[in-house]
């Protein structure tokens, strides 16, 4: 570049080892994990297992992708698991064969629940200045209550075939619908985050709220919107889950918020906001799902799995912290 200051010498712009590790650490971890699993259990890379991992990743991933938007603004959304369960139940209710409704109605009801709770979260956090942790903790409880109220906590059986296709079906006989939905969502989210003004404003709001405000950005609207995105994606995950397990169950989504946060954090997005990457979240999603699936195949006890996953999350953030010192 011609405008560069001649007085500043430019060395070869190689990355230091630290930077390399913090940028690609999770990716390297994922690749190593796959190699190790393949060596131990060649079945790990069988078509059906890969399909299985990706299908479950898609459901969890929807939450993590939405969470990435929220975390980038410096917030957090604890209600996603409850929203997932809530949307799952309400959509299942309208998808019962006895209701005799079009499957789109069920989907719209589910997404609508996400929209309502997300807007509620967003308005609380941005316009009423409720701290995100508290606001979404409250709506988590509200969503859970709404879920139980619908059927008095009883499961909803016998859903219509068209609805069930959303979770268990394969497009063209081999590609799970859930994966297709996830890919479409990802394409939209990547475009939003990196190709539009909106995405740039999200980074700006998270990086310095005051500077963003002074630059003429409607910061309240940006903050409000990310909670809507997060809730709608969580609702989508709930609908797919109900369709997959072919019934509405009130416990759907329980504890999923922590998983989603872990995936975002493994991907290198800073909880302080303003710094992070969507592809990192994708790696976070795959890393956690491969780990779960692999440990299952090896027959590792679930309780040990929890301990291992805890260390993985902390380790990933430690690696990322190496670069934060400068």
């Amino acid at each position: 570049m011609s405008q560069l200051d001649p007085g500043v010498q430019i060395k070869r712009r190689t990355m230091s080892r630290r930077q390399f590790v913090s940028t690609f650490g999770s990716l390297i971890g994922l690749i190593l994990l796959i190699i190790i699993m393949y060596a131990l259990k060649p079945n790990f890379l069988s078509t059906s297992n890969i399909r299985n991992i990706l299908r479950i990743s898609s459901i969890n991933g929807l939450l993590a992708v939405g969470m990435t938007f929220v975390v980038l603004t410096g917030g957090i959304d604890l209600s996603v698991g409850a929203v997932m369960g809530c949307a799952g139940m309400y959509s299942a209710y309208f998808a019962q064969t006895s209701m005799n409704k079009h499957w789109m109605v069920a989907v719209l009801v589910g997404v609508g629940m996400g929209l309502i709770i997300g807007t509620f979260n967003g308005v609380c956090v941005s316009y009423f200045r409720v701290p995100p942790f508290v606001g979404t903790l409250g709506s988590m409880s509200i969503a859970k209550g709404l879920t139980f109220l619908l059927t008095d906590a009883k499961p909803i059986p016998s859903l219509s075939t068209e609805f069930k296709f959303l979770g268990g079906g394969n497009i063209g006989g081999w590609l799970p619908t859930a994966i297709v939905i996830m890919l479409v969502v990802l394409a939209i989210c990547f475009t939003l985050l990196y190709k539009t003004r909106y995405g740039r404003y999200i980074f700006a709001v998270g990086g310095n709220l005051n500077a963003a405000h002074v630059s003429g950005i409607n910061t309240k609207r940006i903050i409000c919107s990310v909670y809507i995105i997060s809730s709608v994606l969580a609702a989508l995950a709930g609908i797919i889950t109900s369709a997959r397990v072919t019934s509405g169950v009130t416990s759907t989504g329980d504890g999923y918020e922590t998983n989603a946060i872990a995936m975002v954090v493994i991907g290198g997005t800073s909880l302080a906001g303003g710094r992070g990457r969507l592809w990192g979240t994708i790696i976070g999603i795959l890393l956690l799902q491969c780990l779960t699936n692999g440990l299952d195949m090896l027959g590792v006890n679930t309780y040990y799995q929890m301990i291992i996953k805890g260390f993985v999350v902390i380790g990933a953030v430690m690696l990322d912290g190496l670069n934060a010192e400068d």
Binding site: F203, A204, G207, N208, A211, A212, V214, S215, I217, R275
Partner: peptide, 18 residues
């Protein structure tokens, strides 16, 4: 630093923000 710049963002992205 408080109101002028978004410190973690690049020079380019700061420049075009408004």
């Amino acid at each position: 630093k408080g109101k002028g710049l978004v410190l973690p963002m690049s020079i380019c992205h700061n420049t075009t923000l408004p």
